[in-house]
Design a protein around this nucleic acid. Structure first.
Lengths: 343, 343
DNA sequence: TCGCACTTATGAATCGTTTCAATTTCTTGT
DNA sequence: ACAAGAAATTGAAACGATTCATAAGTGCGA
């Protein structure tokens, strides 16, 4: 059924080796031959079989990317950045989501290993990195995304989450809030823990400020809504006057719940800060103050480090790239609605 | 370096054929042998080489999915649905975005063809489907996603866009609007044309209603914002009193522009209807009335049809699955903000 | 005319898995 | 104890592209 190099070779009156050369290093083939073979390729609709190519070559020309949540615009942007950088160097990106389940994470890594991907970019769920060590030992370079490599044993691209958490909480304190709620989870996610850590640092530096932690089961709009209703129903003497959500999806859900409930006003009764600064944070009912992370850049840089590491081979230098977060202040912490927003 | 079936066979004292059987049909191998071989596999950290598998098998166990815009939550949801259904049957989904460029579309299809994917799911950009015919002729089943197959030559999963456009415009007319603007593009996208068609039908059925068309360069938030500013600056006698945007991203952008500009109120001065009903439509500054499409279901169903078609082989029955759209009315066309929204 | 260097082309070996016809081993009933 | 049939195992062939050592062809100066 399918046409192979052999068919092309026969039809063009050359050997298979020559066809392969026309495909991969035309400069070593006589121009006339190149033309003739290409004509036959065209005529027969020959399409290279990537599996055979890969089998012989040992490695594929794809990177595997494991994100925490494929439906979160933040990770979409990372993926986008990674794809575009990879494409520039002739690579493809296979993306999969672990969706807060380390079982899924394992499955994806197994899958990528079977595919002999040229490298794995991962925003790991667990603190246990042994699987990643094993992966690298078997010859697959690994780069951590949106997560630093504490001991510098992996290349990584991350944003300083402790600093981000700190600036979020500090901002709430600066606008006069004292009963702050941190909403985030699952705690397995390092990013969440770091943001909380930063917030705690800011709060404990102020005598009369308190930080109450609400654990979320996932970083989703739905979960945010659930918790938002819970908050809205608290008696006013138990209710926080500010919320710092571990990501924008949660923040959006919380905001929805508060609006639907209707008894509280944002930011008057409750101020709200999110994290990631996804596009939709600025266009929500009340535009949400959020900690910005350069998602597309993170994706691009991760692939960049990957390419370097793949090039260098065994004795690769591990690079840790850390971006600085930036607070985007909007109506949910006090800027009047309708006023020109910060960019 | 890497362990192969041969190594496992040697170590376990069996033939390679038996190792393969343990991997693929353990029921034909004696239980004791299965155990022994599996132990060796475990011990040596053997990982199947998918390329070799595929080469021998002729086809990969992945489907290729081409969407119009990977960062649009609507397509994210389709992807999500497709992934989850595919996984249930042991398949993987490779997703790529054409981003309004038929060049990208071609590149992706070429890539998928080289990979010998088990099938291609595509939301095609162009009306010219010859590439898809060729693809199918070469043995790759094709299913159209979010787009009907007019002549029933392909299996497809779509939503009745004409009906959707009609109900959107009809709703605007019902709430008393007469100067309606349709904002959408590029016109190459069939979905956009159909939605416009539906809107035109609704408008032309009412004597004093008019429909003005603004062509967008892309279906993005940014483009929506550009057009939104344009609208906001029109003198009141030239300004539409209602906008029907071809998707929610555009609608969101338009809304942002109007809010930033600050001279107009939604829905009082301009009512707004979007399309797709992405999660973020209901949590925007003014919750947006939108035409709902069951995105996750579309993805799942597309893979379902794909599986059937792949199973049936040559003489496959082409099925056209058409979902009905549903109007979700929210504040941007009049429901008081804060009131409980429709679900 | 010969020899040397250089350009082209060749085709067998290779990658690692799966398949399947052939062979060996095990059960059973008599 | 033996034949017949079932169960388990074997190993060579095949998938299709790439590589590389080798061979064939060309040009040119002596």
């Amino acid at each position: 059924m399918a046409i192979s190099v052999r068919d092309v070779a026969r039809e063009a009156g050359v050997s298979v080796g020559t066809v392969s050369n026309v495909l991969n290093r035309p400069e070593v083939v006589a121009p006339a031959t190149v033309t003739r073979v290409q004509a036959v390729i065209e005529r027969l609709d020959f399409v290279r079989n990537d599996a055979a190519r890969q089998l012989r070559g040992g490695r594929s020309r794809s990177f595997g990317l494991v994100v925490l949540d494929a439906r979160n615009p933040f990770f979409m942007d990372i993926t986008h950045g990674a794809q575009s950088r990879a494409l520039e160097s002739g690579y493809t990106v296979l993306m999969g989501a672990s969706d807060d389940s380390s079982h899924n994470e394992q499955r994806l890594l197994d899958l990528f290993e079977e595919q002999r991907v040229a490298g794995v970019l991962i925003s790991p769920l667990q603190t246990d990195l042994s699987r990643l060590w094993k992966l690298r030992d078997s010859g697959t370079p690994v780069v951590m995304v949106d997560r630093g490599s504490g001991d510098r044993s992996f290349s990584s691209v991350s944003v300083d989450d402790v600093a981000g958490g700190l600036m979020a909480a500090q901002h709430l304190i600066d606008i006069g809030r004292r009963r702050i709620a941190f909403i985030g989870g699952p705690v397995e996610i390092e990013q969440v823990r770091h943001r909380l850590e930063g917030a705690q640092a800011a709060v404990s530096a102020v005598g009369d400020a308190t930080l109450e932690v609400f654990t979320a089961r996932s970083l989703s709009v739905l979960e945010g809504r659930r918790i938002g209703f819970e908050l809205a129903q608290l008696p006013s003497n138990k209710r926080p006057d500010a919320v710092f959500a571990a990501n924008d999806l949660l923040a959006l859900g919380i905001l929805q719940a508060i609006m639907i409930d209707g008894t509280l006003r944002v930011p008057d009764d409750i101020a709200l800060v999110g994290y990631d600064d996804i596009d939709f944070a600025r266009s929500s009912i009340v535009p949400i103050t959020s900690v910005r992370q350069p998602a597309v850049e993170i994706g691009r840089t991760a692939v960049e480090l990957m390419l370097r590491e793949a090039q260098a081979g065994e004795d690769a230098v591990r690079e840790q790239f850390v971006f600085a977060p930036k607070l985007m202040v909007r109506a949910s912490t006090g800027i009047a609605p309708g006023a020109t927003e910060q960019h």
